[in-house]
Design a protein around this nucleic acid. Structure first.
Length: 376
RNA sequence: GUGGGCGUAGCUCAACUGGUUAGAGUACUGGAUUGUGGUUCCAGUGGUUGGGGGUUCAAGUCCCCUCGCUCACC
């Protein structure tokens, strides 16, 4: 179980195409994983997720622990049956929520004392807690409890978080005993190259099924992200999947793949979709723009999603401005399709031995920013 | 017809007894969002204070005329 088979490796970049075997199916990599924090990818039914080609989705330990709670999750028979999704699931460990909801949390080597963002009730999160919850949720892949840290940070703070993350990885592994669930370690170390190497080596020593790269996409410049990936690429085990956590900005995906990353997840397609920001083959656009008022062309002529095949920009803009639910659904569907297809196309390019060319073409066509978005 | 009240940004309303460059919310325009709160944040456009005249160093504010809306009473 959990075999990771490399199908092709790019000769000029670090890009890899592989297949990762899990209890709920084989995941073809590189892969983009939609985020479904509360046992639902917002605005998408499982059926629609399959339609956009989602191979695996995320669930969130911290959020599901608070609501609906573990007693109910156990009674439901785990996340798969609870939400009616029978493809693979990866559960986040809650470590990131310690970071993102940090306000009144107190972090020690033991774990994190924090208060619920819903009702203020006190809770204790720890590696043991994270493993217990994730094993009840029953995802195909569980993540170690880690300490994510803000950017920028001092070397001392980054070192402390790294050491704690290693400590917690050991405790996570000890507490994890579900053989049908893979456990991934998480590399920390902020933007310090040597700390990243140290973190990775300490985790590799423990021999996890796969490795998350955490603590990136927290506001650092893209060069920092790419450099860290460049540093990690040669030392990460070749035969294990690598997961760049929280990354979903399309250029980051393309460049991440070039640096050996196999898996990505991000809220960007779904959250931005709900707010009318669309990622398309020509770049980024915001559908609320006045310039689309009378634009009766499809959002992205090169896209095969429900939105692009059936509706116009003018119609979508109208719905979005009115706050209509369908706008959120269609934009979400499109953005997910785009991210997933981006990974799919990258995979095809890698298999064909054409990934460097793929990168070049992507950067030529995907334009960001308000001035040079547009046109196909 | 008579008497009272009210007219300020597209909309809903601020601006102490006259005192800097008439503000806010919303709407509108543009931007942001990276291991999720359909949220939120940032920036910008927008005014002959219904119209006209007068008093005053100074008028959204006081006086006169006029237009419009509204309430009460014949």
């Amino acid at each position: 179980m959990f075999e990771f088979k490399l199908s092709a490796v790019c000769g000029k970049t670090g890009a890899r195409a592989g297949e990762f075997v899990t209890p709920h199916g084989v995941i073809k990599t590189p892969v983009f994983m939609p985020v479904g924090t509360l046992a639902t990818v917002k605005a998408m039914s499982p059926r629609e997720l399959e339609e956009v080609g989602a191979q695996i989705i995320l669930g969130n330990t911290y959020h599901l622990y608070l609501r609906p709670g573990m007693e109910l999750m156990a009674e439901a028979g785990g996340l798969h049956s609870f939400m009616g999704w029978n493809r693979p699931i990866l559960t986040d460990s809650g470590g990131f929520q310690v970071f993102s909801l940090a306000r009144l949390g107190k972090i020690t080597d033991d774990g994190v004392k924090c208060r619920s963002h819903i009702d203020g009730s006190p809770h204790m999160m720890s590696p043991e807690w994270a493993m217990e919850v994730q094993q009840i949720l029953g995802g195909d892949i569980a993540m170690c409890f880690d300490q994510c840290i803000q950017y920028p940070t001092t070397r001392d703070e980054a070192t402390q978080a790294l050491e704690r993350t290693t400590l917690w990885a050991r405790r996570s592994k000890d507490a994890h005993n579900r053989p049908d669930q893979a456990l991934f370690g998480i590399v920390q170390g902020s933007a310090f190259d040597d700390l990243r190497v140290r973190s990775a080596l300490e985790l590799i020593e423990m021999d996890f099924v796969g490795y998350g790269i955490g603590g990136l996409s927290v506001g650092e410049p893209h060069e920092d992200m790419y450099r860290v990936l460049d540093v990690l690429n040669p030392i990460m085990p070749r035969d294990k999947p690598r997961y760049l956590m929280g990354v979903g900005y399309p250029p980051n995906i393309v460049e991440g793949i070039a640096r050996g990353v196999d898996m990505f997840d991000c809220v960007m397609p779904t959250r931005n979709g709900r707010n009318g920001t669309i990622f398309a083959s020509f770049g980024r656009m915001n559908i609320s723009g006045k310039k689309y008022e009378r634009d009766f062309s499809p959002v992205d002529p090169e896209c095969d999603c429900c939105l692009c095949r059936n509706f116009t920009r003018a119609y979508l803009r109208h719905m979005h401005r009115c706050g209509e639910i369908l706008s959120a659904r269609l934009c979400t569907q499109h953005n997910l399709r785009f991210a997933i297809r981006l990974a799919e196309r990258a995979r095809e390019a890698i298999l064909a031995g054409e990934y460097p060319d793929f990168i070049k073409r992507f950067h030529e066509t995907f334009k960001d920013g308000p001035t040079n978005e547009e046109q196909t």
